[in-house]
Amino acid sequence: MRVRLNPAFLFLIPALTLILVFYVVPLILSVYIGFTPLQRWNLNRMGSITAYNFERLFYMMFHDPDFGKVIRTTIVFTAFTLAINVLGGLGLGLALYLMDEVLSLPYRILWLLPRMTPVAVYSLLWYYFFLGGEEGTLNSILLRLGVINEPLSWGTDPRLLPETAWVILILVNGFVGVSFGMIVFYSAFHSIPREQVVAARVDGATTSQIVRHVLIPQVRWHIVYVTVWQLLSLLTTFAHIFLLVEWGAVHRWWGSTWALYVFNVAFKTYEQGLAAAAATVLVIIGAILGLVALRILKFKEMMVEPKGEI
């Protein structure tokens, strides 16, 4: 008798290899680097193992007068943007699914544009949109309409902070994030066997009933996925915030999330040891939140066992 290799393994080899080489090994290395005084990419001088990076990081967090703002911003930003990304994405995907294709395609392109645009250009557009002077797009419109009588610095005016800075962050990121959900849900709705919809329709169900009882339950897996994925993205990335802060479109601290804070502390000064330590802390927090989210969303129940093999 030959020992039979589980065929699943064959299908998984490429993925596992890539994950091993580009995720697991770097992950371990990264944690290791977090315990070294590596500086300025000088890989030839790694130095000896120390926990100093972690000590310093925590010391900074507890003593930095701006850290409280960063934490509050992160919580508000993550919560609202996540809601927009998941619910907005779901709504958008649904609406586009229900629309005629002639209308739906241009709309999908429009809503996908922010994701397609180079981050720098996208940030530039919003930077000019919220620009403080009367040259800013928003200011010029509102001035024309008579809503305001002098131009406002939307993201930085102390009288408007922190809410306006938060709104800008959420808006700018929401428009990018929502398209992720849109594409996933739109495709997911389309992969639902059509006869189910048709059958419901024949039975006399209204549109909203079809949506609630036929369509939404079928994309539960995708909802879990989009939620957890976006949660982790929002906690760890900052590409679309970075330039807005750098260019002064939003207040430095009411516009910085935790990930950007870590980046600024650790990466700008070319201290990779510190950066890796910071990343490790980020990951631990992210992983815990991610696991909690998976429990809440009842991920295990969705991992139904394959229905046997022949």
Partner: peptide
């Protein structure tokens, strides 16, 4: 007051 966030090219 918002000098630090003026735009180079426009302001």
């Amino acid at each position: 007051a918002d000098m630090m966030s003026w735009d180079w090219a426009k302001q």
